[in-house]
Design a protein around this nucleic acid. Structure first.
Lengths: 334, 334
DNA sequence: GTGAAAGCGCTAACAA
DNA sequence: TTGTTAGCGCTTTCAC
């Protein structure tokens, strides 16, 4: 299991000390060219590869960053993870990924697992986190940034957007279009502060306009359940809504698909708005009206900030990104 | 940077030797219950977590598995990665993820990066790989399994499906439905042996029926490009096809969206079949006819086999999973 | 069942 | 510029 040729064998073979071999590996400029050559020859003679684990052990750095998302199997997260990944790799880091399954307890366990794998830093969704996480990370001096929710009062750096604003924009759009029968479908707000904020923003828009929501529901991210919820809403005893305000694009897809299956025409019979502007949103038919979140930029920036932190570089603490209404064909005036 | 509370502090605090603490950690059954309790108390008193890097260093195992996919930002891969992730975590392993960006050279670099991170094993897509990869993994004694393509002659264990069969089934369905004007859109076959196999399967089905394909195109996974290709095909000077056979579901979505946008009715004017049966396929309207690949089971099994290998357990070398036509509403007889 | 002690392969002072 | 040396935190014989 263990490697046969260590730094000492190379040293002996090259007639130098192990320290010189180590230097040849890490700071070759400190070694006389002639010596360096001899060492390198010895290395290839002996087919030597430095043991990364010993290295990580002694330097205390694994050049690895951990991240935890509810699930990777969802464009809402995979777009961001992908961007984070690219940023990290371009800086010589790698991504150790974990799923929380929307569960704070699991998230905590995953943080432990990640920390115990020796990650140098962590990127978390900007949701509520278990208190213990802060302690653990503090104790291990592991920098952490959170993404998705801008919060100047956050303990960790937050790279995100104003989720209340997101909700307000979406709901206001529907109101301005003249809708009175507006239903709302949100992600489960239980352990998700972003969903809470969005719902709150939607409520603000309503009360500012003196309106009220016709019906409000919460769903998880399974299209199956989203569709069923949409069906119940449309078939409801109070009659169907003329518009539905969804707290994210995935939910909007579900509503869209179900509405069309039920024979409704979107946007003629039903207007639908999402939040997020996932890649798919401009391709589905009709194109989904939504509020754009620059997900990829968010995560890429989060990666950069984390690496700044890891290198003890000066960096910003909180970053807010702009969001923006994207009107397509799934909404129309009443 | 370095942890404050080590195994020695715990030992002192519990009034035992560090060896006992180590045993309490690794083989608690060898420690007297009373002693064990004292040690565990000491651990939580001192808020002790074993340093995984030291552990990995001394045991030679990082309890980490690496995987490389073209991009995570695509349901075709994220479904599998997610399943792999779950399997790994349930066995005490974690996933170190990398993207190849559809590039064999990058893949090789990522393998290096992963190996140098000390991964215990690797899961690769069953595509062509650089020869050097085998050497590198062999040298470091790092087990590797490939997923997606069943190939009893493969050097590494292969966990996958018969991609030719997939192509045959898809094309045959269209032929049996009576279509003569069939277009084909495939993923770029350049560095993708599965796409090659599927295209070949489609060709086999055609020649077996004495038919020929009306037009064949290749596209990457960007919906933008897929839609453009679909548009060209439909607007082509030879007149539109009555059916299009897509080498994966993502491509089928693109064709579906574009066809509907162009005012065609699916399946009345155009039949569309995909391959893969992604989650979304049963939700889009109309529901997508496709050939089911048990992606999650594939990747989960790959994870299990890899772990068997890591534990020096007996295990199978190659596993073929069944595939199956799933008829929904995007295809009809001419 | 428990403790003492010897490393694992490498890095990083410090000395020369 | 190069060598000597002392660990990093843990696991693991081997005695007791």
């Amino acid at each position: 299991m263990r490697r046969s040729n260590g730094i000492r064998e190379v040293a002996k073979h090259a007639g130098v000390s192990s320290a010189s071999v180590s230097r040849a590996l890490n700071r070759p400029e400190l070694v006389r060219p002639e010596t360096l050559r001899r060492i390198r020859d010895a290395m290839s003679d002996l087919n030597f590869y430095p043991d990364a684990m010993a290295r990580a052990f002694v330097t205390g750095s694994s050049k690895t960053v951990g991240s935890i998302v509810p699930t990777i199997d969802n464009s809402m997260f995979s777009e961001g993870i992908n961007a984070l990944q690219d940023t990290l790799v371009s800086r010589g880091y790698m991504l150790l990924l974990a799923n929380s399954g929307y569960n704070l307890e699991t998230e905590k366990e995953m943080v432990r697992a990640l920390v115990s794998r020796g990650v140098d830093g962590l990127v978390l969704r900007g949701e509520k986190h278990d208190r213990e996480i802060e302690d653990l990370l503090g104790k291990h001096r592991i920098p952490c940034v959170t993404v998705g929710r801008y919060d100047p009062a956050g303990g960790f750096p937050t790279i995100g957007v104003d989720n209340r604003k997101l909700g307000r924009i979406a709901m206001s759009h529907l109101i301005e279009l003249g809708h009175h029968r507006i239903a709302q479908i949100s992600a489960v707000t239980d352990q998700n502060d972003r969903a809470v904020d969005r719902v709150q923003g939607m409520a603000e828009a309503c009360s500012a306009a003196g309106r009220s929501i016709m019906a409000a529901r919460q769903v998880d991210y399974a299209l199956e359940n989203i569709r069923q919820t949409a069906r119940e809403l449309i078939d409801g005893s109070d009659g169907p809504p003329t518009a539905v305000c969804c707290s994210n694009d995935i939910i909007a897809y579900g509503v869209l698909f179900e509405a069309v299956r039920m024979g409704l025409s979107v946007p003629r019979d039903l207007s639908i708005i999402g939040i997020g502007n996932l890649d798919l949103s401009r391709h589905v038919v009709p194109g989904l009206t939504t509020v754009m979140i620059p997900t990829r930029r968010l995560w890429a920036r989060a990666g950069e900030i984390l690496i700044d932190l890891l290198c003890d570089r000066e960096t910003v603490k909180h970053v807010e990104f702009d969001v923006e209404l994207v009107v397509r064909d799934s909404t129309k005036s009443i």
